[in-house]
């Protein structure tokens, strides 16, 4: 595990960026930046999935994990975002 340790400094920076991203998505939820509400939905979901990706890679120390685990995580991020975005914007419906 020692070789995979994510330095505390990097995690501190990531944590601060995650707080900033939280405030950004909060602001987006209140603004009318996009005339089409689906764009706002897509951007809020994108920010959420990017935040989650950083939590998994840096906080859970998956960034330097064996390739199969890292690839699984990256695939989950892409799939979860695509699926949630498609359903939330009405492109996909069950």
């Amino acid at each position: 595990m020692t070789d995979n340790n994510t330095p505390l400094v990097r995690c501190t920076i990531v944590c601060l960026l995650l707080v900033l991203a939280t405030l950004l998505s909060w602001q987006l939820g209140h603004s009318e930046l996009f005339t089409n509400v689906n764009y706002t939905i897509a951007v809020i979901l994108l920010i959420a999935i990017i935040k989650i990706r950083y939590v998994i890679l840096d906080f859970m120390e998956v960034r330097h994990a064996p390739a199969p685990l890292r690839i699984t995580v990256e695939l989950w991020c892409v799939t979860a975002f695509s699926l949630m975005c498609a359903v939330a914007t009405g492109i996909l419906s069950f």
Partner: peptide, 10 residues
């Protein structure tokens, strides 16, 4: 993080 986006912000 996901719940905040889905239930509070969208």
């Amino acid at each position: 993080i996901a719940l905040f986006a889905l239930l509070y912000l969208l």
